[in-house]
Every structure is written in C-alpha cells, then in structure tokens.
Amino acid sequence: MGCFSSTSRKQFPGHEDPILLASKTFFSVSEVEALFELFKSISKSVIDDGLINKEEFQLALFKNRKKENLFANRIFDLFDVKHKGVIDFSDFVSSLNVFHPNAPLEDKINFAFKLYDLDGTGYIEREEVKQMLIALLCESEMKLADETIEAILDKTFIEADADGDGKIDKTEWLNFVTRNPSLMKIMTLTYLRDITTTFPSFVFHSEVDEIAT
C-alpha cells in the first residue's frame, strides 16, 4: 500500500492526506476520497497531470470546452487558491467546502462578494455589475435595451447601495443578501451531502483504514 500511495500522490500535487483535509473541512474522510474520484475524472479530461486547468473546469461545467464564460472564469480564479493557474486537489476540497450545506453562511456571503468583486477592489462597482449582467444576457441569448439594463442597475443599486456612492461594500452586501436570501442559493451544493453515493468507487481506491473514516 505504501508504494501505491506514494505514486498516487506524486501524480496529484496538492493531494493532502484525506484525514488532514477532512479535519480542516466539513467533509468526512470518505467524502474527501469520493471528491478525489470526481477530481481525478475532471483533471484528466484534457491533460492527465493531476491538476484542473481552466479548460478542464469549463468542460466539466458546460460539457463543452469551447465555451468561454465570465462567471466560470471567476469561480476558477477563486478555486485557484494558490494562484498557480491550476486547481490542485487541496484547492478543490477547500473551495468546495464553502459550498457545503453545513458551511457558515458568513463564508458563503464572503465568497459571493469576492466572486462579484471582479477587480478585487473590495467593492462591487456598478460597472462590474453591468459587465456581469451583459455577460449573463449574452450567455442566455437574451436581448434587453440599454435603458432596460440601466433601469435594472438603478433598481439594484437603490436596494443594495445604502450610502449611494455607486458601489456596494461588504456591509451593504451583507444587508442586501440578508434581505434577498435567494441570492445565496447558488452557494450551497446539495450534491455534497451524498457525494459518497454519487462516487461510490472511492471505496476501491481508499488509502485510509476503515476505522479512520
């Protein structure tokens, strides 16, 4: 088992000990191992190097590698915790941890704020929201007149931008999502509740004694 284990980890940079990863997240050891099965299948879809690159991530999301998408890029960048241009297994588990049903709402709200703060200025600015809105309209092949887009932005900022400075800060964001809890639905993945059922093959590749799971 020792030889198998070390070879496996060499092929997968960032494949920390499942027990350690489980101790730092809301996942059990079995769930971390099931996530590894998912990670393996995504990370070998284009280049079999044990890492997820942007193309592989988009392929997994859209089942189509040609699709360029602002939101998928933002999610990828946030999952790329070490800013290496690729997602390793440890990044994958720690990022998905925020989407766990048991993760604190505060973490989900902070992650969503970072997601929408495209330029990382610490504020969600009107131009950024406009850019995301236009990206969404392109993606869904929906056409809206410029005045309609501006009206949606006006309405959004009247609701969210309490001090009226044209940008949403973290406190305003917290208040806004508290009044609009449906916005946080995308931050919880119910799939993570029964991940071991979705990827039962982890049992055959487990490196951990049953007692530790």
Binding site: L38, L115, I152, T156, L189
Partner: peptide
C-alpha cells in the same frame, strides 16, 4: 419572472457558469 422585476444579482445568479452542480453530473 420578467427581468424588470428582478435585481441584477437575481439575474446573474441564474448563469450556467455559476451552477457548480453540473460538476457532479456525469
């Protein structure tokens, strides 16, 4: 719902790019 009755974030959150559930669909 009509886009006009929604705020920008309600619309944005419908993006397929934010639907991480599709990672789990084989």
């Amino acid at each position: 719902a009509s886009p006009l009755t929604m705020n920008a974030f309600q619309l944005i959150s419908t993006s397929q790019g934010l639907n991480l559930g599709s990672l789990f669909e084989k």
